[in-house]
Design a protein around this nucleic acid. Structure first.
Lengths: 138, 138
DNA sequence: CCTCCTTTATTGCAAATACAATTATAGCAT
DNA sequence: ATGCTATAATTGTATTTGCAATAAAGGAGG
């Protein structure tokens, strides 16, 4: 009955454990790598936007960004038109790291899907698109 | 490319945010309700077994169980044959709460799957079963 | 223009989290 | 038996997390 909902949670938690351990050597545990990936892929988001993008609490996201700024991966920049927001950009250090993060995500994705044919992957993608949380499209 | 892996993570994080908010009123935030559900459904697991079952760090799981024991939801019992392990059982308080937790999980599951036909749900279940994390079946 | 409501960023603080280390027991191989 | 290795529970500790509250700015309506 709850197989779908529970399995989705289990997959996420197992992957989180793995990624945290994997990136600890780089000092990038606790989902830090997710932030870098998102900012490199979509530079210029403001803080609340990024938090929504990664589905993480805003204060947590805020502090994580602050940490990544201190570590030299990201920079914050005031928006000229809207004084309320600060936009986030990757530094060169982040750009240089990105391929490694991308390769990790790729490897994890391939591992996850290794037992599915191309058609099955497309089918799974299609079905996941139809899922919703709290009445909202994900 | 990463749509599957990212969407699975997004769904889990959104549901976790919702469940934490929902159960806060009962003093059961932070996945506490997951522990109660698992122990009611499968009483007698020992601590490490439960931790693996919910895919959560063992020390975190240990402290959470301790908290739930203090709150009167769970009891710990030494195993007579194996002195190394302590088995976990639900109290009556947990049993009485279970229907409510079950109803919540049911409602969330139905919301998640509302746009899928029965055939699509079966298909999704089948595909999720074929996924693996770190080379291991989930 | 002024007031009210919303959005964004930020800080305080208490609780949760997880790595590392420790202790105790079990099980296996000599 | 004895030692070695693995597993389970537990604690110490530093970091992370997230709710609540605050401040500043934007936006909508009269």
């Amino acid at each position: 009955m709850f197989e779908i909902i529970r399995r989705i949670g289990a997959i996420t938690r197992l992957m989180q454990i793995d990624s945290n351990q994997h990136f600890k050597a780089l000092g990038l545990n606790n989902n830090l790598f997710i932030y870098i990936i998102r900012v490199v892929e979509q530079p210029g988001m403001f803080l609340a936007e990024l938090a929504d993008s990664v589905q993480i609490d805003r204060t947590t996201s805020f502090r994580t960004v602050k940490k990544l700024v201190a570590a030299g991966y990201l920079t914050l920049q005031n928006d000229e038109l809207n004084l309320k927001i600060k936009r986030i950009y990757p530094t060169e250090k982040a750009q240089l790291l990105y391929p490694q993060l991308h390769a990790y995500e790729m490897a994890k994705s391939q591992d996850l899907l290794v037992n599915l044919t191309t058609a099955e992957q497309a089918q799974l993608k299609r079905l996941l698109r139809k899922l919703q949380v709290n009445g909202q499209k994900v």
